[in-house]
Amino acid sequence: MFTAAWTASPQQPSEGFTPNWSREGFWRQSLRQVVRLTAGGGRVRVRLSHAYGTSPLRIAGATVARAAAGAAVEPGSLRRLTFGGADAVRIPARGQVVSDPAELPLAAGEALTVTLHFDAATGPATYHAQAFTRSHRGPGDLLTETDGNAFSEVTESWYVLSAVETDAGRTDGIALFGDSITDGFGSTPGADRRWSDALATRTGRPVLNAGIGGNLLLNDSAWYGEKALHRLSRDVLDHPGVDTLVVLLGLNDIGFSETDEQPTYKPAPVVTAAELIEGHRELTRQAREAGLRRVIGATLLPFAGSDHWGERAAKTSHALNEWIRTSGEYDAVADLHRVLADPRDGDRLRPAYDSGDHLHPDDAGYAVMAEAVADVL
């Protein structure tokens, strides 16, 4: 039985927060990506997404290996992936494929390197904007390269790869569903210090990160993904082994309309607490209908002083948080607002947990979030 051990939620090609390769895609190149697994096993397979492709995508070949430094891999660990027994595969527009399993013993917490070779022009590539770790690109077929020296270009996004699954046989996976805070913005790049990483270490359970920076609960966004109400099935419920959902959403719905500094936030409809509450209720309904054992609500973090803050934002966030705490709609509540608040001003992040923008936690703040969720699992 296979269990999702790592995920990244697909996004449509866009400029995103930082420069990336999604709009140009790939041609006669190899792409090497490194991910940290939260469940081990003796066999591994990958899920490749072409969710936003408008024509078929050809994968000329793929390999997996234990990661070494940078783009290097551990010698002797390389395994060629097949798809229905074939080395190459064509993914239909808006489709996905899952590879055949490859024999490769891996432990929870271990880093896996996935290499894809594109011998034909891909066009714009489905991707995940904010990886907070490096991916590597080089010319030609580099599937079996071990030292990584030919991978001369780097990015901090993931492309095409949407999940890694192992034969762990686990059915106690935890999915974190949210925006840039769940994605890990403000954590140390390359250090695996997101709160999903901290929660996996703390609990020993598979933890899937289903965050998208800038994501909204109620509305689609050109750069920041489909609204959460539409993507829950694809990004959480369709992955094997998940039994618990943690929801942390609504901050961008509230805050994007407070600032004119980011044109990518537009249009940014003004939403009410009642609308957000109905959105949360719909998420819990979808999760329970899919058979999840537990659905946990997390209160919005303090964000006074950030570009998302204002009088209306304060009123709406307070009302939503009070509903999450007291409504009984969730099986349990992680009161992240309380544990991260500045004791001198409850609407602000504690300075020791602030990455600097008064909106996103730092590594220490993410560790506190993980502890708060672990306490109510």
Rank of each mutant, 00 (worst) to 15 (best):
H337K: 01
V46R: 04
G346R: 14
E282Y: 01
L176W: 01
A273W: 06
K227Q: 14
D253N: 06
G42N: 07
A51N: 02
E289P: 03
D363M: 10
L232C: 11
P267I: 01
T171C: 07
L106N: 05
A68P: 03
L340P: 08
I59V: 15
W309F: 15
H358N: 14
F151W: 07
R47P: 01
D362M: 03
V247T: 11
V207E: 05
T144K: 00
L116N: 11
D147I: 02
H280V: 06
E261Y: 04
R134Y: 12
F26M: 11
L37T: 08
A86Y: 02
L217N: 04
L208D: 09
R47K: 10
W27A: 15
F17T: 12
R294G: 00
W21I: 04
F26P: 09
A191G: 10
P206I: 09
T316W: 05
D100M: 03
A175Y: 01
G138H: 03
Y353K: 07
P263I: 08
W195A: 03
G225V: 08
A67S: 14
G61F: 02
L78N: 13
Y330M: 12
A352E: 14
S99F: 00
A150W: 02
D307G: 07
G95M: 06
G138L: 08
G297Q: 11
H337P: 02
D179C: 03
Y366M: 12
T54I: 10
Y330W: 07
R23C: 06
L48H: 09
L116I: 09
G211Y: 05
